[in-house]
């Protein structure tokens, strides 16, 4: 058991507000059109829905980042048995679910109103979409498992084992799914590569958007970690009462 980490609040607030300002700029950049500065080029089929690129794609990057953070902290739980690591793993898993759902939602809406307008299909068996759904399922199971164990130390250890175990099976999805399912994503069979359809102007917003959403993940994640630490102090420290 270690002492709870000390938090430099001034720096924390600075970074948090920085992230919010950054994201505001990204959103402004994403929706600026009609002769203003960042007019996106016209792309076949996509047209203005291409702006979804700024939101949909960063969700995946963020989910991957959250998954990685969660798995790393789960690994450290097994190494050290530290409860702070467990709190971090859990918060990151929660964020992975949130961003995974947002990515699914933006992806489904995008596909529905761009490629399947007449077909009336909401769910398409896109490999990346299926993978995200599976990833969300895994974390759902992770939280169900956590609630099934009462002893907190045992809960931390066994949840970490499950998290890592699930983490190692995910690469197989990456390998197996694209062989069996068709994709709407760039780079998949017959679709143009990502670099062919993105204009430099779009990248001007796209890359900051990735940074911005990962920053948003960081803000939400640290906030949940701090909340959980405070909760724990309320539960365990008698001097506070």
């Amino acid at each position: 058991m270690s002492t709870p980490p000390t938090i430099n609040l001034t720096r924390y607030r600075l970074i948090r507000n920085g992230v919010f300002v950054w994201l505001t700029l990204v959103v402004l950049g994403a929706f600026s059109f009609g002769g203003y500065l960042l007019n996106i080029p016209k792309i076949n089929i996509l047209e203005h829905t291409a702006r979804n690129l700024y939101f949909h794609v960063p969700m995946w990057f963020t989910m991957m980042a959250a998954t990685g953070v969660s798995a790393y902290h789960s690994f450290r739980v097994l190494q050290t048995g530290d409860y702070v690591r467990d709190i971090r793993a859990r918060a990151a898993a929660m964020m992975a679910v949130v961003f995974g759902l947002l990515g699914l939602l933006t992806g489904i809406v995008w596909a529905r109103f761009t490629w399947y307008v007449s077909a009336d299909i909401w769910w398409n068996f896109d490999p990346k979409q299926s993978m995200a759904a599976v990833q969300v399922l895994i974390y759902g199971a992770y939280f169900v498992l956590r609630s099934g164990i009462e002893d907190t130390r045992k809960q931390a250890r066994i949840a970490a084992v499950y998290n890592l175990f699930a983490f190692v099976t995910v690469p197989f999805l990456l390998y197996v799914l694209p062989r069996q399912l068709e994709s709407l994503h760039p780079g998949a069979d017959g679709n143009p590569a990502f670099s062919d359809i993105t204009h430099p102007v779009m990248r001007l917003v796209f890359y900051p958007a990735i940074i911005g959403f990962i920053g948003l993940f960081w803000v939400l994640y640290t906030q949940r970690v701090r909340l959980a630490l405070l909760q724990r102090r309320v539960d365990h420290d008698d001097d506070l009462l």
Binding site: S130, V134, L137, I138, G140, A141, V144, L145, G148, I149, E150, K154, I158, V161, Y162, F165, A166, T169, F172, L173, Y175, V176, L177, Q180
Partner: peptide, 25 residues
């Protein structure tokens, strides 16, 4: 893992199925 939990039985499918997608396909 589920032998360590309180509810045991019904938990296994919940934990197992998400991992089995690559195997199933």
């Amino acid at each position: 893992i589920i032998a360590r939990t309180a509810s045991r039985g019904p938990l296994l499918p919940v934990l197992l199925f998400p991992l089995l997608f690559p195997l199933l396909l």
